[in-house]
Each structure stands twice: as C-alpha cells, then as structure tokens.
Design a protein around this nucleic acid. Structure first.
Length: 268
DNA sequence: CGCCAGGCTTCTA
DNA sequence: TAGAAGCATGGC
C-alpha cells in the first residue's frame, strides 16, 4: 500500500542527505528508506510528488509531515533569509532542504557519535547501535531508548567501534534517564540556559548541544558551528549573520553547511 | 605513512 | 583563559 502527497519547493534527497539525519538509506535515485516513529518508511520523489510506503495517511498527518517539516512556512523563511545576497545564493544552491524535526534523544545520541567523525561512519555506527540495542520491529530496528542504554556497561558498546565516544553515549543515556536532561526545558528555556543543561553531559560541547537543540528540539535560533560552518562564516560572513536572520539562524545554518561542503566556493 | 572527518576533554603556560 | 595535544576508528 502506498499513497501520494503533493509538495512544493521540497527535495527529499537534499533534505535526507545534508547531514542532519543518519538513518535513511538511498535505494535508488530519489528513493529513500528509513526508520521514523518505529516504522520503516520508503519515500520516492518524482517532481513535486512524494510516494510513501510503510505508513498511511493518518501517520503522515500525525507525524511524517511534521518530521519532514512539510508543515513549516519555508516560503516565508527563505524570503526572510534571501534579503541577504550571500544567504540567497546558499539557498538557491539547494532550495529543497528542510530542517527535519527528529526525536531529541536520537538526535543527541547521533550527534555525540558525530564528533570528529565523518558522515558515512556516523551512519554506520548509528545503524549498528540500533541493530544491537534497538527493538526488533520486524526486520528493522528502532532507536534504542536511553533507558535501554543506561543499563549497559562501557564494554557492551565495544561492538559499535565508536572509539572514545562510548563513555559519552552512556553518560548521556544515564542523565537522560534520570531526568537531569529535560526535553520540555530544552524546548522552552532561553537558548543559553538550554545549552548549559546539555553541556553538563560528558562529551557534549557547544556544537553537539546546538545540533540537539536545532534538529531535536526545534530550536531554530540554535546555530551549530562545525568546521565547515566556521570556514564559511569567516569567508562569507566575517561580521556574523545579518540580524534579521538570527531567529531562524538554524535554518540558515543548514543551507550554509550544505553550500560550504558541496559548492566548492568555500576553501579549507 | 600521513591527513581528515558535522569536537570535546585535558593539560599547559 | 587561551591554545595545543590527545583521543578511536576508518577512508583515502
């Protein structure tokens, strides 16, 4: 069973391959399979049409639409950001990118793994983490809960081959389980206070904290700065982003990140 | 062999 | 308090 959805100004490939998520696999050109909300979903895009398998329309309305941020006013966001010529160029380079809304724990854990690592290996470690510790949902696996991981010892994570990040994952899982890390607070508190809460986790610094806030807590004012963004900022925005962009700096961040990595305009 | 990857912790001056 | 070394692993 499958159904179709019309979308405008959206690219499945750009959205899933711009480095914000790690559980989607390309099956063919513009065809991707991933696990979201404990379902294995396959999405194909042809033009402005998505064909969706693995969930029904009610699921789309309940969570998939929001997961892909198809419920967000991107025409408006892009119009605001395009007031700056450089931002407009970055957006035009990959107009179909949307910042997804992923589960907080999955996002935090994935970006802890991401540190000093490359995207393909991040995806491989996350995949292993799910296969080994996630719930078997019938041939595919959910993302393991913090409670599940919190009961493990460091040695149990050796199978992930994630190096020194094993202790970070466990610390995050335990702090999440204990309630010290509170999703509601992260979504509602002033950005700096939310960031401070995340920074108390071992192995979580400013970059990972901002990724968790942007991708996992819908904090569009968070602005993760990795090596590519730092290069892009010094070369394109030496005085920082224009002020009107700051409330949605995180949206701008994703266009800049992709532009910096793929356009060839930014040098190392 | 070296360098790099969506960094962070720890040590040092 | 700023800056550099050290850190696991794998691809090139």
């Amino acid at each position: 069973m499958s159904f179709k959805i019309d979308v405008g100004d959206f690219s499945l490939a750009e959205t899933l391959e711009c480095g914000q998520c790690f559980r989607w696999r390309k099956q063919a050109e513009d065809v991707y399979t991933g696990v979201a909300h404990d379902r294995s979903v396959t999405i194909s895009q042809r033009g402005d049409e998505l064909e969706i398998e693995g969930c029904d329309r009610a699921d789309y309305d309940a969570w998939l639409r929001s997961y892909l941020s198809l419920d967000e006013p991107y025409d408006e966001y892009k119009a605001i950001l395009s007031r700056d010529d450089t931002l407009r160029r970055a957006i035009c380079f990959a107009r179909g990118i949307r910042v997804m809304k992923q589960p907080l724990w999955e996002t935090l854990c994935s970006f802890i793994i991401s540190q000093n690592n490359n995207i393909s290996r991040i995806a491989s470690i996350v995949g292993m983490l799910c296969r080994r510790f996630g719930e078997n949902l019938g041939g595919y696996y959910g993302f393991p809960s913090p409670e599940r991981l919190a009961e493990l010892e460091v040695g149990d994570l050796a199978c992930l081959m994630c190096g020194y990040r094993d202790v970070y994952i466990l610390d995050a899982a335990r702090r999440f389980t204990s309630g010290e890390i509170d999703g509601e607070y992260l979504r509602a508190a002033p950005l700096d206070d939310a960031r401070k809460m995340l920074l108390t986790i071992k192995g979580v610094g400013p970059k990972v904290a901002d990724c968790a806030l942007l991708f996992g807590a819908r904090r569009y004012d968070a602005f993760p700065q990795d090596v590519w963004i730092k290069r892009a900022m010094s070369q394109l925005f030496p005085d920082g982003l224009p002020e009107f962009a700051l409330p949605i700096a995180g949206i701008a961040q994703q266009y800049i990140f992709h532009y910096a990595r793929k356009s060839g305009v930014i040098s190392r």
